[in-house]
C-alpha cells in the first residue's frame, strides 16, 4: 500500500516538473528515426505533457551541434531538471534512458 502511494507521488512529481531535453539527430538516418520513436514512447508513457523536446538535425545545423560540444548523433541531452545527463545511440536501451532521465519505472 505504501509502495503504491510512493509510486503515485513520484509519477505526479514527474508530471509536474517540466523536463527539458535536446535530441541531436542526422536527418532521417535509421538510428535517428529510431531514437525519436523510442524517446517519444518514453515521454508519452512517463512524462505525458511535462517535457520540452528540441530536435536538432546536425546535417542542417552542424554549427549548433558543434557549439554544444556534440560528437555523435543520435545524442540525447537532458538539460533540466538537474542533474544534466546525456545518452548516445538510438535509445533502444530503455533502462539506461530512464536512468539518465532520472525516471524510475
Amino acid at each position: 500500500m505504501r509502495r503504491k502511494k510512493a509510486e503515485k507521488t513520484r509519477s505526479r512529481r514527474a508530471v509536474l516538473t517540466v523536463m527539458v531535453m535536446r535530441l541531436y539527430i542526422a536527418d532521417a538516418a535509421p538510428n535517428s528515426v529510431k531514437a525519436i520513436a523510442n524517446l517519444e514512447a518514453i515521454c508519452k508513457e512517463h512524462l505525458q505533457d511535462g517535457f520540452k523536446l528540441e530536435i536538432i538535425d546536425v546535417l542542417k545545423f552542424p554549427m549548433r551541434a558543434l557549439a554544444d560540444g556534440i560528437l555523435v548523433t543520435p545524442h540525447l541531452a537532458k538539460l533540466s531538471p538537474s542533474p544534466a545527463a546525456m545518452v548516445v545511440g538510438n535509445l533502444s536501451d530503455r533502462a539506461s534512458v530512464l536512468s539518465a532521465l532520472g525516471i524510475s519505472e
Binding site: N31, T73, S92
Partner: peptide, 16 residues
C-alpha cells in the same frame, strides 16, 4: 552500430 553521424570539431563538418 547505433550512430548515424560524427561531428568533426576540427573541420566543423558532420560525417555520415
Amino acid at each position: 552500430g547505433e550512430i548515424d553521424a560524427v561531428l568533426d570539431h576540427e573541420t566543423r563538418t558532420a560525417h555520415l
